[in-house]
Design a binder for these strands. Structure first.
Length: 314
DNA sequence: TGCCAGGGCGCCG
DNA sequence: CGGCGCCATGGC
C-alpha cells in the first residue's frame, strides 16, 4: 500500500507493510558514502543523501517506509531497485544458509538481517571505490563530497531543508566533468595518488561508451554489457580491471553495489580474516552460491562489529 | 612519531 | 604468480 502527499512542495512517498528492511544497517555497512542520519528527525530512523542524481531522504517508523522528494513514478523507476525491495531477502538468506553449516555465517546472517545491497549508479560506484583504496570511510566521504561540490551539478534542495538539504548539495560528478578537470584538477582536492586513477577511470568510461549518469543506455551500452548475464561476474571484473587503479577488490565492490551482481565477492583484510578464522583453506566464494556477495556483506558487517575481538570458534 | 585506513601498481625472485 | 615497497593524506 502506497500513498503520496506534498510537504512544503516536496512529494513524500509512504509505503506501508515494508518488512525486513533496516535502513540504519543498510547505510552503515560500508557500501554507500553519501548518506547521513538526519538530526532531529521526527522518524525512528531517517537518512538523507544523494543517489541517482537526486537529494532524497529515507525514513522508517515500524513497517512504514517514507521517501522524501519521491513520487510513485520515481519509486517504480529508481528507489524500489535501489533499496533492493524487488528482491526476496528471506529466500536469499535461506539460499546462503543452505550452502554452509558454518555457525559464524549463521550468526552473521542473523546480525546483518535487514541489510539490503543498494543498487547504486555504476559510474559513481566505480569511482567511489577507487577513492576507497587505502583510505578510511570518513575521508572517503569527505573526498566524494569535495569532488561533488567542485565538479558536480547543484541539486534542488527546496522543501528539503529538514531532510538533508539545509546546505547546498551536489550530484556526483559525471565522467565528462572529471575528464575535463584533468589529473591536476582532481589532485587539487587532496585525492592523492588516486587522482590519476580517477582520471583514467573517467577517460576509460567515456571511451568504453558509458553514459554520463552511468545507467543503462541500451543493448550496446557499457553498463548493459557489464550487467548482462551473458558475461560471468569474473568476465565483467576482468573488463573493469582494464581501468588503471581498479583491481579485484574495487571491481567486485562495483559489480556488487553498482551492477546488481549479487555473486560478486569483494575480498579485503576483514574478509581475509573471516575466511581464515571460520572457513579455512578450501574456501571459495562460489561455494556460497549466487548470493555470495550478500553473504560477504553480512560477514563484513559482522566482523567489523566484533571489532577484531579474538573469538576463535566456528 | 609511527601506524592505519574496505588497494593497486611495478618490480623482483 | 607471491611477496613487498611505494603511493598522498589525515586522524589517532
Amino acid at each position: 500500500m502506497t500513498g503520496t502527499d506534498m510537504r512544503a512542495g516536496v512529494p513524500l512517498l509512504r509505503l506501508e507493510g515494508v518488512r525486513g528492511l533496516q535502513l540504519d544497517k543498510t547505510f552503515d555497512c560500508g557500501q554507500c558514502f553519501r548518506f547521513e542520519p538526519v538530526a532531529g528527525s521526527r522518524h525512528e530512523v531517517e537518512l538523507a543523501g544523494v543517489a541517482h542524481g537526486r537529494l532524497v531522504s529515507f525514513a522508517q517508523d515500524g513497517d512504514t517506509l517514507y521517501i522524501y522528494n519521491a513520487t510513485e513514478r520515481d519509486y517504480d523507476a529508481i528507489w524500489r531497485q535501489y533499496l533492493g525491495l524487488d528482491r526476496d531477502y528471506e529466500a536469499i538468506n535461506a539460499n546462503i544458509l543452505s550452502r554452509s553449516s558454518s555457525r559464524a555465517l549463521a550468526a552473521a546472517v542473523q546480525h546483518g538481517s535487514g541489510i539490503r545491497i543498494l543498487r547504486q549508479q555504476p559510474w559513481e560506484t566505480v569511482c567511489s571505490f577507487i577513492i576507497s583504496q587505502n583510505n578510511n570511510i570518513p575521508r572517503i566521504k569527505r573526498l566524494i563530497s569535495a569532488l561533488s561540490e567542485r565538479y558536480g551539478e547543484p541539486l534542488d534542495t527546496r522543501g528539503m531543508e529538514q531532510h538533508g538539504g539545509e546546505r547546498p548539495i551536489f550530484a556526483f560528478p559525471t565522467p565528462e566533468a572529471l575528464y575535463a578537470a584533468g589529473v591536476d584538477g582532481i589532485f587539487e582536492l587532496r585525492t592523492g595518488f588516486r587522482a590519476k586513477y580517477i582520471y583514467d577511470a573517467a577517460r576509460w568510461w567515456l571511451e568504453a561508451g558509458g553514459t554520463s549518469d552511468g545507467m543503462p543506455d541500451g543493448a550496446l551500452g557499457l553498463v548493459a554489457r557489464l550487467s548482462s548475464p551473458e558475461l560471468t561476474t569474473a568476465e565483467a571484473a576482468e573488463i573493469l580491471e582494464q581501468i588503471h587503479g581498479v583491481g579485484p577488490k574495487v571491481a567486485a565492490c562495483s559489480l556488487l553495489f553498482g551492477f546488481g551482481r549479487l555473486d560478486a565477492f569483494p575480498v579485503d583484510v576483514w574478509i581475509r580474516r573471516v575466511i581464515a578464522r571460520y572457513f579455512g583453506e578450501g574456501f571459495s566464494p562460489s561455494g556460497l552460491g549466487p548470493y555470495a556477495g550478500v553473504a560477504q556483506q553480512y560477514l563484513f558487517y559482522y566482523e567489523r562489529y566484533l571489532g577484531g575481538e579474538s573469538s576463535g570458534e566456528r
